[in-house]
Design a binder for these strands. Structure first.
Lengths: 178, 178
DNA sequence: GTTGCCATGTAAGGTGTTACATGATTTA
DNA sequence: TAAATCATGTAACACCTTACATGGCAAC
């Protein structure tokens, strides 16, 4: 349900087409959805039905027409209420931990290979995230907002760094068992 | 799809009824599913259809009959192949980051209240997780397996600790903006 | 000339959740 | 007497993903 508010929030920053929203969402890690058409467009239709967004059609020569969505007063109210609501905990979904649960059947070499592959994946992901952060643009309407967005980016890189430290420590500790 | 392998893994540890599996999964954080009936029972039926598990019915006086599932040779093979397969990255799904994205509309007091509530939630979750770890039983078939399960538990508490450090730092840094 | 971008939308399917349904036994 | 535990299973629905469909334009 929170993709509603991700979209409302983006529209509270600037009017966007569905296509724009889709791109922003799929490029972002904090907005963790895939940004597929179905979800974005149907959510926009629903938000419109509820009066939380409105749109104007903008025709373009030699390009398909755009629906430029913007947030309504009611939409801003709904967003504010949601932002004030009790936060959810982060969802810790790490399939690798399940893989590791049953990894004692592997030989020392197989296990270290598995761990090395995971470490490498996380390492690359961290680098990609850092690069994303460098390129990213944020609303930046006040110094405080810029700070919040910086910290949001830090949260994600921090999670990968934490995971990386964990896997390195794990591999180190495994050397005793060879 | 990975709940299949969570269940196969649990059965590779010890034979269980669906009810047992359900309880283990819903009590565990690493096995991150809710452990609802529908998923567990239908997955067991599917695994049985594929010949990866088998069961015997155990009747009990004055209690409903149990189906005691155990893993087959084919099941052990499938599990081993999955454990060796390329690990997935952790899924970072933190709705709070989206809430925070649009939190600059809040007054300093409202914002700090939101952050304080989040910090408290994470703190409690960390304590609960540590308590869980203390009570938990693990397969513990070899010293290496015991080590792996210890590290899996550490991963989860570590994630909460990391989040807690992040939110504390964030609140500290916000004081400049009051 | 095939791929990718712009821009909308639909279809089909996988995954996961809550709630419902039964029915005896134990606990508060 | 109400609720929780044991034990199975189904129904309904929310959420999310990939893939399909159209059609013009630009780039390589």
């Amino acid at each position: 349900m929170s993709i509603r508010y991700a979209i409302l929030g983006l529209l509270s920053w600037q009017p966007c087409s569905g296509y724009d929203l889709k791109k922003i969402i799929s490029d972002s890690t904090a907005f963790f959805w895939s940004g597929n058409n179905n979800q974005v467009y149907t959510t926009l239709v629903q938000l419109h039905k509820e009066g939380l967004v409105e749109y104007t059609v903008q025709t373009q020569e030699s390009l398909p027409a755009k629906k430029i969505y913007s947030i309504t007063i009611a939409g801003r109210d709904a967003l504010r209420q949601w932002v004030l609501s009790t936060p959810d905990l982060p969802e810790l979904h790490n399939t690798f931990l399940i893989q590791l649960s049953w990894a004692d059947q592997l030989s020392p070499g197989e296990l270290d290979d598995l761990l090395a592959r995971y470490e490498e994946e996380v390492r690359i992901q961290l680098l990609m995230q850092q690069e994303k952060n460098r390129r990213a643009t944020s609303p930046d309407r006040t110094p405080r907002e810029a700070y919040l967005w910086q910290k949001i980016a830090d949260n994600i890189t921090g999670s990968y760094e934490n995971e990386l430290a964990w896997i390195r420590d794990l591999r180190q500790g495994l050397e005793k068992f060879t």
